[in-house]
Design a protein around this nucleic acid. Sequence first.
DNA 1: GAGTGGTCTAGACCACACA
DNA 2: GTGTGGTCTAGACCACTCT
Lengths: 259, 259
Amino acid sequence: MLQLGTVDRSDDRPPYKQIADELRSAIDLGRLAPGEKLPSEADLVEHYKVSRMTARQAIQELRSEGLVDAEQGRGVFVRKVAPIRRLASDRFARRHRQDGKAAFIIEAEKSGVQPSVDQIRVSRESPSSFIQERLRLTASDSVVVRARRYLANDIPVETAVSYIPAEIADGTAIAELNTGPGGIYARIEDAGHILDHFTEEVSARMPTPEERKDLQLGASVPVLRVVRTAYDTTGRPVEVCDTIKAAPAYLLEYELPAR
Amino acid sequence: MLQLGTVDRSDDRPPYKQIADELRSAIDLGRLAPGEKLPSEADLVEHYKVSRMTARQAIQELRSEGLVDAEQGRGVFVRKVAPIRRLASDRFARRHRQDGKAAFIIEAEKSGVQPSVDQIRVSRESPSSFIQERLRLTASDSVVVRARRYLANDIPVETAVSYIPAEIADGTAIAELNTGPGGIYARIEDAGHILDHFTEEVSARMPTPEERKDLQLGASVPVLRVVRTAYDTTGRPVEVCDTIKAAPAYLLEYELPAR
DNA sequence: GAGTGGTCTAGACCACACA
DNA sequence: GTGTGGTCTAGACCACTCT
């Protein structure tokens, strides 16, 4: 059983912070292990002689720090750290496509997790100004939009939406649910657009409520947004892929020239 | 004056969420502009006919989403969006060092913000295992550690800690407070280590309380961690720079090969 | 002093998980 | 059914900001 102190009413920290600090340090010191259950609100009320709202506020503090998750009817538990997937800077190299696998599948298998994809949606739309800018299109052009969600060991870790100029996608399997071996990039190359390089724009923020739901994110879990644009050997942008990743699950690697 | 609806007790969303949703959409639609004051708790209590704790919970929801900031004695205000600095993939190219400026200074000036540096600390330490791994050193080696904080228009946006093998730094200005024109990288090249490339490891997470203080971060503002390792033309790692950036202030750009 | 958010109390009823 | 967290009420006193 966890050993707890008492609230010092003369301390300049309010009681709820003192309680939060005690629980936090218990977590940091490993006296409360990942997955372990915290004392219940009733326990805290009784032990610290505070009202329930004060005990709840202490718990709320830890939730907002992302240290614990509350589960109604079960209790509050120390959050387990997600396994990190390292995305190497050569992850889109052609040699990884040769055997017909998509980038996510390869990366996942390398990390020893079971990859899967669901919530695939395909449509044809008019590009937003964000996409127009990156694909050098106008509002009168059409793009094929492919949205999907990636899971690692059945845990959602990333959503991705690809935009391909309809002119390139038409007549290929890009607009089909199953794009065939090697994924979108293989089909784009089949269509005569040999890929030359990609740019990625990386930022981080808190998720929207919808993203939080799609990725089943706990409180205080940020997301990484990675917008990738693919260019063919003529310098033409041929695809934009807008991805939202659960931040704790990823580490991105890049290489930069010094020249 | 902001137009507000009412809580629907038969709605399946609890009242505090309905109130939060109304305020959030007012913010999203621009009816509450950045910097503008939200209705006070007393206003909400009166308008929606709920208790103060319920009104507070609605506000708390928006705070945890990072949409608003509460200021005691003043009110709750829509958070202003920070100007974004875009870091280009050629930001460490040698041509940017030629005129004797450090990377941060160049980037900042390009973005039209006034750059500054403070909290410079220099020391000599034994490398952590994290640093040992990246610089290929052992615990018995020494590294020169340079910590500093970068500000844009006097707002702290980034902390950085560089680790340079003492063997390379000794006898140069790297261990001085002022490293001279071109910064650390120019001194490393002076010492005969011509820079070839860098790797960056990018991740995002919530800040520690100390980072939150250093970067003056509001609630629910994530940070980007970028760990950069510099390699010379012989393939030897010559510096590791561990940076923590206020996420809303940055957009990182990278280029990836397709081959 | 008036208005604001910060903290706290002592209750209440509900929804959910588990045995 | 018992224990858990989720939500709510109707008060209270405090610290801070602004006029």
